[in-house]
Write a protein that binds this DNA or RNA. Structure first.
Lengths: 122, 122
DNA sequence: GCCGATTGACTACATCTGTAGTCGTATTGC
DNA sequence: GCAATACGACTACAGATGTAGTCAATCGGC
């Protein structure tokens, strides 16, 4: 259970991590419109997430309320690991270096990361 | 051209970034065995990479020597951006936080990241 | 010069993914 | 009560992906 979610599915799952439960219509409005998906598409993604065991559907009257069934930290951690393995041979600093070069790091990001590192070293 | 490489394709491309040119047989021996792929599979991945314009094939006698045709920094940067967008809403520090929590950061990583940040701030 | 090994070209095929559409039913506004 | 609508179940379908196999040509060793 809890097979990997595809990229699109991950967007939906992400929205559920941010707020849950949500209905298909809710998600269509937020994630759907953000990605240019119709309600039908969002429903399909939800169905697949449920089938993969990444999301649970709880009946509320005639409709369902969806909730994440996997832990965000776990899922995100797994993905991150795969990602750094795949592109950086498991090394994290080259990733940071790339993000920095691409100016993908805001001042806030930098400050936050520094704070994190301080905590890590203590 | 230069469409996105799939995960498996990326492994091959990555090997070419590390060393090039290489033949299909070379790659099968390294990336192939590392992933449990046969020579045939590696050849397919190479063909797809060439078709996508991510790798060039230069004939050397009866065989080809493959070289990356896309810049590593560019490709990796794009992937990284997509990745942080997808899982962290574009914010980098949560990614670092997760990696840190998973103890995926070595002391060396931390030191390197700090050095990077110092450079960024100057 | 012949034979086995090598190599690219082409083909195969199940599954996953992205992106919906249809349909029957239940619900709700009037 | 009936019509419009909302909802889930099921179906559709092309393209991407993972994973290889076949085949014909060729090269290298004997």
């Amino acid at each position: 259970m809890a097979e990997r979610a595809s990229e699109s599915e991950m967007q939906v799952l992400s929205a559920l991590w941010d707020e849950s439960p949500q209905t298909a219509a809710d998600l269509a409005e937020t994630v759907g419109t953000a990605n240019g998906w119709t309600l039908a598409t969002v429903k399909t993604l939800l169905a697949r997430l449920v089938q993969k065991g990444a999301v649970t559907a709880e009946a509320e009257g005639r409709r369902y309320r969806y909730r994440p069934a996997v832990d965000r930290a776990d899922a995100v951690g797994d993905e991150s690991q795969r990602f750094v393995d795949r592109l950086f041979g498991g090394r994290v600093s080259p990733l940071i270096a790339h993000l920095a070069e691409r100016e993908a790091l805001s001042d806030t990001d930098i400050a936050e990361i520094e704070a994190l590192l301080r905590r890590l070293k203590s």
